Simulated scan of single mutants.
Amino acid sequence: MKLDPLKLWNNSSSKDAIIDFVRRVTDSDSADFVRPEDRIAVFDNDGTLWCEKPLPVQADFMLRRIAEMAKKDPSLAKDQPWKAVSEKDYKWLSDAVCPFTEVFQPNNRLERLPLFSINEII
């Protein structure tokens, strides 16, 4: 009996391509072999490859963009949302951007995850 690594997937060219890719990069005799220490794995419970915690990708992008804009034009910092980003006003950002206020709390353990740090962005 052959093991089907993606048994819940429909048979398709996409499924075959994924299985073939994994086989090639994990086979040490393959020209496409990737050493384990050079591999990156992405996991998500709903099947997407978007990271959702500690902050949605879209919010991360938005905050980085706002910070870039305020750095380029400091006069923006007198108005929201540039003011909140410039002043690291986590409360304003939480209320305006994300219903999960714990994400923006400066000493919250979520902030210290390697995927994201609000202090690195703003």
Results as ranks from 00 to 15, higher is better:
59 A>M: 08
59 A>D: 12
71 K>Q: 10
79 D>F: 11
71 K>Y: 12
13 S>I: 04
25 V>C: 01
122 I>P: 01
100 F>T: 12
89 D>T: 08
121 I>E: 04
26 T>P: 12
2 K>H: 12
111 E>D: 15
117 S>F: 02
88 K>N: 08
38 D>W: 07
88 K>S: 08
19 I>R: 05
14 S>E: 15
114 P>L: 06
37 E>V: 09
77 A>P: 01
12 S>A: 03
98 C>P: 13
91 K>L: 13
10 N>K: 11
84 A>I: 11
11 N>S: 11
47 G>D: 02
67 A>K: 02
81 P>C: 00
100 F>E: 15
63 L>V: 06
80 Q>M: 03
87 E>M: 13
39 R>N: 01
76 L>T: 01
7 K>I: 07
66 I>E: 04
45 N>Q: 12
38 D>I: 02
10 N>I: 10
51 C>Y: 05
66 I>H: 02
44 D>I: 07
22 V>N: 03
77 A>K: 00
24 R>N: 09
60 D>L: 15
67 A>H: 04
56 P>C: 14
58 Q>H: 09
51 C>N: 05
22 V>I: 09
121 I>T: 05
67 A>L: 06
94 S>M: 02
64 R>G: 03
16 D>C: 10
63 L>D: 04
54 P>W: 09
32 D>K: 03
2 K>I: 13
54 P>V: 07
1 M>C: 15
